[in-house]
Nucleic acid binder design. Structure first.
Lengths: 226, 226
DNA sequence: ACTTGTCTTTAAGGTAGGTTTAAGGTAATG
DNA sequence: CATTACCTTAAACCTACCTTAAAGACAAGT
């Protein structure tokens, strides 16, 4: 689950970022309106947190531009008490929720959960394909015979594949969704995790495999046995 | 057991807080309506005590907003005699009980017990798993061989684990329920108590263990012996 | 008010496991 | 057969977690 956090006060931004990370969100932090807009347009997020007062472009304008460009990602606006009028403006402009600063951390995380819940509401706890099951709560990958624990990155890669069975996913799509934008990591790292996953899939006797398409990316498919 | 206490008169608030703590409740005290609302929305409480006359937002409004946001935590309203009419209003708005000030301490604690009992009504006095038993009245953890006393925090952590056997509980969930809200350096305290509990579990020859899942949290499970 | 004992939190160093890099190998494509 | 893309492994690096000790809070008794 990936969140774009647009908040120019570094201290608050860092605090919120830490809290989100502890709650298993991946966070991209930006510190001004134009970055918020650019990153938001990529549609790689499950939720966007927008401060209203920001350098270069204010949150309301970012919000309007995102919506007018067809971005439907749920958005939570942060407003200082003095900007209360903006709230109505914000909600009219297509925000899904707002919070006035200062706020309790508990409320923040509760609202983020509510915001992203709509995406997960229909998402089952367990994904299956062929004879494998991926438990999204305890990160366990299993067949009826055996079971292994997946590390975070392994889990994220396999989850993405299982959410899109038989669909070709490009290496750069993996990079965009799973690794942060500011990551220097090479494409190679995707290959490495594909290799790890293949080994684990084989070790539990899975009847699905990760197929590579040269120059493009990967697909999760049932093993043809002929 | 966690209580949110919203009462703006400091002296009364402190007194009630002390009484609750003596009775093994964890208390978060707030002194105005908006804080009461914000904290209440986090849904981390087993009961909420709301004064009606408070700065910023009165208790009735807080109550209505909590209920309209789906919060079902039991709520006890405190009203001055002069505000008697509000009582009916409060109960209609979704309060579970009310008390008129001034009141006797004994009555207060009795009502809090009644309020929180519904959550514990089906919860037994003793929790067991594998060969261990946790006595929720005297904080004693025992096997048939030996027995140790648990301190408050130790007890709360283990209780949470035993109420959810084989379920992965995140470190931040522990922080939310047992400690006040998330902060970077202090997650450590959860680790410390996990360490203490592991030592005590081992010392009485328990056949259950606390397993860690890196990046996620902890699970209480029977020890595999192969 | 002082002491004492108990519980809670902080701090710091260590360890294991997770992540990324790097490098050499293999297979597909022209 | 040369090139490119991908695979695999291992080592380096990084982070989360474990453990212990000690400081800090708090309450009970003197």
């Amino acid at each position: 689950m990936r969140i774009l956090l647009a908040e120019d006060e570094r201290e608050l931004s860092n605090a919120l970022s830490a809290i989100l990370k502890h709650n298993h969100y991946t966070v991209d932090a930006v510190y001004n309106g134009t970055d918020a807009l650019n990153y938001g347009l990529s549609e790689n997020y499950d939720g966007i947190v927008l401060d209203i007062m920001m350098p270069q472009m204010n949150g309301i304008d970012v919000l309007k531009l995102l919506r007018s460009n067809g971005v439907e990602t749920p958005i939570l606006l942060l407003t200082a008490k003095a900007e209360l009028d903006d709230k109505i403006l914000g909600l009219n402009s297509g925000a899904d929720d707002y919070m006035t600063k200062p706020f309790a951390i508990g409320e923040f995380i509760a609202r983020i959960r509510a915001l992203t819940r709509r995406n997960t509401a229909f998402a089952p706890n367990k994904l299956t394909m062929g004879n494998i099951t991926l438990n999204r709560e305890n990160f366990q990958l299993s067949t009826d015979k055996a079971s292994v624990h997946l590390a975070n990155r392994e889990f994220q890669v396999l989850e993405m594949l299982m959410l899109n069975p038989n669909v070709l996913i490009s290496t750069s799509k993996f990079m965009d969704r799973i690794w942060s934008f500011d990551s220097e990591a090479e494409r190679n790292v995707v290959w490495v995790y594909i290799a790890y996953l293949r080994r684990k899939l084989a070790s539990i006797g899975a009847n699905v495999e990760i197929k590579a398409t040269r120059g493009v990316g990967y697909t999760l498919a049932l093993i043809d046995e002929e």
